[in-house]
Design a protein around this nucleic acid. Sequence first.
DNA 1: CTTACCATGTAAGGCGTTACATGATTCA
DNA 2: TGAATCATGTAACGCCTTACATGGTAAG
Lengths: 182, 182
Amino acid sequence: MAIEKKLDCVILGLLSTEELTGYEIKKCMSSVIKYFWSASYGSIYQTLNQLVENEYATKREAIENGRTKIIYRITEKGREYLRVWLSIPAEKNELRFETILKLFFGGSADKSISLRHLEDFKQRTVDELPIIEKYVEDLDKIKHESPTNMNYLLIALFGMKIFNTYLEWCEESEKLLKDYND
Amino acid sequence: MAIEKKLDCVILGLLSTEELTGYEIKKCMSSVIKYFWSASYGSIYQTLNQLVENEYATKREAIENGRTKIIYRITEKGREYLRVWLSIPAEKNELRFETILKLFFGGSADKSISLRHLEDFKQRTVDELPIIEKYVEDLDKIKHESPTNMNYLLIALFGMKIFNTYLEWCEESEKLLKDYND
DNA sequence: CTTACCATGTAAGGCGTTACATGATTCA
DNA sequence: TGAATCATGTAACGCCTTACATGGTAAG
């Protein structure tokens, strides 16, 4: 497993504080983490298997409420791998915004189409903002309990700030487009 | 070719205003577009072939200064495909920030590591900002020449706004982290 | 003369998604 | 009883990157 792959690091990061099942990992990745790193079931279970193969994690079966779960735990080798990854500089910070793409090429189409994309993007942003603000509020209260909480707060603040910037930009752009006469 | 693929739309978008070679397309994608959609040579030439196969574009050879180039041109079918894609809502707006990931999991490591990632991210942002500001400045002057320029300006403004937000966040986060006592 | 840039491509393989497939439990 | 949630996985396939491979031209 090459160092270029990131999902393994995300999973090891999650496992570094607690044992988890694949399902629980997916849940984590569908909440906070989804804002800056998303993954599907397929990739999570595959990565989990690779992690075990490479001895970065161990798995064990457990029965809870009559249901069988597979619980994963990080190994010392896995912790070392995570430590190394954390200590080297980030390579890629990538934005893949289809909205921006459609707006970029939208100049030759009708203005109403660009306005619709802007409206749509604004709505999605408005919908997400309260969720992120709740994270910020909650984390701010417990930031002194552990450095981990403090780091989580920084990420939540990042989210809050950019989402507010998206909103500002949508409003300014809508105005610019509406006032534009060709 | 499914509608989920986006690179074909990017290329068709570029071809919608002018004929281009694969090399020129790569150049475009390494300048403005790289901020919200990146691609490698491999994927560009492959997509170009698919575009021709599907009759969304035609290719012809030309000799310029003794060098052979392959020039691509969009077809009417390609324009229609682009029109349809532009008119439907954006699906994914994805952020993949390794920096954020490393900060998210950095709580259990030494504080200096998180600070280094912040510093690094700040530096990259500071380096890019003047380039983006130049785009904004240039596009603002010619925005009334065509709706296309106006749309380009919106995208440049988007970049300028978020990069400034990144900067603000870096500074606030550095302060929060430095003042943090565990 | 050599570096940078112009110019095009292939092949291997990694990464990840979607869709499919299954089945138990909990709660209304 | 039926919907939501818990829970795990596979298979096919698409997308894209990296590395490789080649060679011409322009400018200093």
